[in-house]
Simulated assay, not measured.
Amino acid sequence: MHRELITFEIASQIFALDIMAIREIRAWTPVTPMPRVPHYVAGVVNLRGSVLPVIDLAARLGWAATEATPRHAIIVCQVNGQSQGLIVDSVSDIVALNTEHLQAPPTAGQDEVIPFLEGLVAIDERMVMVLDLHALSASGEHAFAA
């Protein structure tokens, strides 16, 4: 079975998401911070009249918070019936993936990241981490802006 993925970069690492979950890719827009939200929720932005929660994906993965600049992007995706934005350093390519090549995440290593991985795949001699959007959103802690 084949899937299409969008690849992007965070902290010099290559990640991917299933293209079917992506609604749009936006240029960086400053967010409005919200009180009493998890540390990885950067804030909210106005998306054509709707409030869109924006997740700092680096912080969500257990890394340092992103110091966003106009070079960053927001990937708007739909998960569990809710739209959310993900801050990424840059968006790279659309790639085709044969699901037979997707390998399970290692059992040792970056413990912060592994629970959020669907798997790993080598694409053009680069190791790409395929994220599981449902796992990233499982806590429901950012449903405040639904």
Results as ranks from 00 to 15, higher is better:
P105T: 01
T32D: 06
G109F: 01
V91Y: 10
I75F: 07
I19E: 04
N98I: 10
H101A: 14
W63H: 00
R26V: 08
V121H: 02
H101C: 09
V51E: 09
I75V: 15
L86S: 05
D18K: 04
M129Y: 04
G109N: 14
Q78H: 11
A59Y: 07
S92W: 05
Q82A: 09
T66S: 12
A146L: 10
F144R: 10
S83A: 15
A108K: 03
I74M: 14
H134A: 11
A138Q: 07
V76T: 08
P35K: 09
I75E: 07
E125R: 13
A146T: 08
R71Y: 14
A59W: 06
L133S: 09
G49K: 06
P106M: 01
L47Y: 12
S90D: 14
F8M: 07
M127P: 10
R26F: 04
L97N: 08
N98L: 11
A27H: 13
T66I: 05
I94R: 09
L57H: 02
N46W: 10
V45N: 06
T7N: 01
V41A: 13
E141A: 13
D89M: 07
E4M: 13
E100S: 02
G140N: 15
P106L: 00
Y40T: 03
L131V: 00
S90Y: 06
T66K: 05
T32W: 08
L57K: 01
I114W: 12
E112V: 00
V41T: 11
H2C: 02
A108T: 06
P53A: 03
Q82R: 14
A122K: 10
S92T: 09
D56Y: 01
I55Y: 01
A42V: 00
P53E: 05
V121G: 03
V31F: 09
R71K: 15
A104D: 05
R23A: 07
P53D: 05
I14M: 14
R126D: 12
G140T: 15
I75D: 11
I123N: 03
G109E: 09
D111S: 11
Q13N: 15
V44Q: 08
T99P: 07
A27V: 06
D89P: 12
A11W: 00
Q110S: 06
A96P: 04
A108I: 00
A11V: 01
P38T: 09
W63I: 00
S137C: 11
E9Y: 09
P115S: 05
L102V: 11
D18V: 04
I94T: 13
D111F: 10
S50W: 02
R71G: 15
V76F: 07
D132G: 06
E100D: 03
D124G: 00
W28N: 05
F116D: 02
L61K: 02
I25V: 15
S12M: 12
V44Y: 07
P33C: 10
